[in-house]
Amino acid sequence: MRAEGAVRHDLAAAGPGACLACREHARAEHLRFADEIERIGTLPGSAVTSAEARQAAGRHRTLAERFSSGSGG
């Protein structure tokens, strides 16, 4: 599993001028990470609370939508 910072770093280059394939990849990775962090928040003994996980997942889903719009911002 990658940390949130790793995802942010990997996708930082996929901005408004990025090609369609890069934007699609960035969107898919943000959605994948949102699902993963949400799942982690439900695990017993997780260091991430359910509320924190939902908040982080929401941020990544918002980022995913920015990449799908092609505007990058």
Rank of each mutant, 00 (worst) to 15 (best):
R66L: 08
I37N: 01
L43V: 12
L43Q: 12
H9Y: 13
T42L: 05
E52Q: 14
P16E: 11
G17V: 05
E29M: 13
S46I: 00
R32T: 13
R54D: 04
A56I: 09
S69N: 08
A64P: 01
S68P: 00
S71L: 13
P16K: 14
G41Y: 00
E4K: 13
S71T: 09
A28W: 12
T42H: 07
A53T: 02
H9G: 10
G5S: 15
H60C: 04
R61C: 00
L31I: 09
R39H: 11
R23N: 04
P44V: 06
M1W: 12
S50G: 08
R39C: 09
S68I: 05
D35Q: 14
A56M: 11
A64E: 00
H25L: 15
P16Y: 08
F33W: 08
R23G: 01
H60M: 07
A51Q: 12
V48I: 14
L20I: 08
A14E: 01
L43S: 07
F33D: 00
G72K: 07
G73W: 10
R61L: 02
R66T: 09
G45N: 03
F67N: 01
C19A: 15
E65A: 08
Q55W: 10
L43T: 11
P44T: 06
D10M: 12
M1V: 14
A51N: 08
A57P: 00
A6H: 10
S46E: 03
A6Y: 08
R66N: 05
F67G: 00
I40M: 08
A57I: 03
A13I: 11
G15T: 07
S71N: 10
D35E: 15
G58V: 05
R54K: 13
S46F: 01
E29W: 07
F67S: 02
G15L: 02
L20N: 09
H25T: 15
E52T: 05
A26K: 04
A53P: 00
T49Y: 06
E52S: 07
A56F: 05
P16V: 11
R8K: 14
A51I: 09
E24F: 06
S71D: 13
G45A: 04
H30K: 06
H30S: 06
Q55F: 13
G15K: 04
L63W: 03
D10E: 15
A56W: 03
C22N: 10
A21C: 15
P44Y: 05
R61I: 01
P16M: 10
C19N: 14
A12V: 11
A64Y: 00
A26L: 06
S50L: 11
G58Q: 02
R59G: 06
G73M: 11
D10P: 07
L31H: 07
A64R: 02
L31M: 10
M1F: 14
R59L: 10
A3C: 11
G45T: 03
A6F: 08
R39Y: 09
R59N: 09
M1S: 15
R8D: 13
R66D: 02
